[in-house]
């Protein structure tokens, strides 16, 4: 029981991180039709950034928010490279985001070195049903919930959120109303950067981050995103949690090395299932 509980809590924390990365992937995809392969990089930048800012003597109340803003700025820059040129098709933009991700490796290694880094999060632990749970774990889920509630409010209640939804739904009609579709795309990348940044800031104290941590974050985030059908960010929360908990259970009860294959297997299964369903649709249409 106590082992199960600790796997569960670990899984929820990890899954919350995946969900944040996934929601960034979904928001960027919906508004721009681009799968942003650099999404995991935003978390790495924020993780490293926080570590540096804390070392420089800044308090947590400043370091983490500043790192998230930095990740958002990196997001906008990534967006500018990917979609800044009018008429770039989404496939070309996807390759551009891959390029940005690789370029970021070089910048990260030169700035922060090639060794994993971490910083201490919330100190102390709580005892829950006889298990000692570090407080940082208990911090992640509530913050993630708050972020998702904020996202839901933004898209459902604000004019800017509706404008973004309009661009996702019909870019031509959005442009006819005078909505700057390119600008909305850049905002989406910025929001994606901030969400990735929040994930990095929350997860780094649990697991030291290195320049290539973006791969596993992207793979898991993408799996959670397509589990949510690349539609609503809120569904990605469910996707991320399911994946995080499943991985934690696999790692706990069998081999830890199986954990990382789970996301890939899941992605593959979903993609194959969707591909066959589309095929079926085409046959019916004809």
């Amino acid at each position: 029981m106590s082992a199960f509980l600790s796997y569960l809590i670990h899984g929820i924390a990890q899954g919350s991180g995946y969900a944040l990365v996934a929601s960034g992937i979904i928001i960027v995809y919906r508004v721009t039709r681009v799968v942003n392969l650099a999404q995991g990089m935003f978390a790495v930048v924020a993780g490293f950034g926080t570590a540096s800012l804390l070392e420089a003597g800044l308090p947590h109340a400043l370091a983490e928010p500043m790192a998230i803003v930095m990740a958002a700025a990196v997001g906008v820059c990534t967006g500018y490279v990917a979609i800044g040129r009018r008429g770039t098709n989404p496939q070309a933009s996807l390759i551009a985001t891959l390029g940005v991700g690789v370029f970021a490796y070089a910048v990260e290694v030169l700035t922060w070195g090639d060794q994993p880094r971490s910083f201490s999060g919330l100190a102390g632990s709580h005892e829950l049903f006889g298990v000692d749970i570090p407080r940082q774990y208990l911090l992640i889920a509530p913050i993630t919930l708050l972020v998702f509630a904020g996202l839901e409010l933004f898209f459902e209640r604000t004019y800017a959120g509706k404008c973004m939804t309009a661009c996702a739904s019909n870019p031509y009609a959005a442009a006819l109303q005078g909505i700057g579709v390119l600008r909305m795309g850049l905002y989406a990348f910025g929001l994606g950067g901030a969400l990735g940044g929040i994930a990095g800031v929350l997860l780094t104290p649990l697991q030291p981050i290195s320049y290539d941590s973006d791969v596993s974050l992207f793979v898991n985030g993408f799996a959670a995103a397509i589990l949510a059908g690349l539609k609503r960010p809120v569904l990605a929360l469910a996707g991320g949690l399911v994946l995080g908990v499943a991985e934690s259970m696999v790692a706990g009860y069998s081999k830890a090395s199986y954990q990382s294959s789970l996301a890939l297997l899941l992605t593959l299964a979903i993609l194959i299932a969707q591909a066959t369903r589309r095929e079926a649709l085409h046959v019916v249409e004809e």
């Binding site: 004019y159 509706k162 404008c163 939804t165 309009a166 739904s169 019909n170 031509y172 009609a173 959005a174 006819l176 109303q177 909505i179």
Partner: peptide, 14 residues
């Protein structure tokens, strides 16, 4: 070319 998933009200406001 409406925004199908948004409400009538939202479409008009946009």
């Amino acid at each position: 070319q409406l925004f199908p998933d948004l409400s009538v009200d939202d479409n008009l406001r946009l």
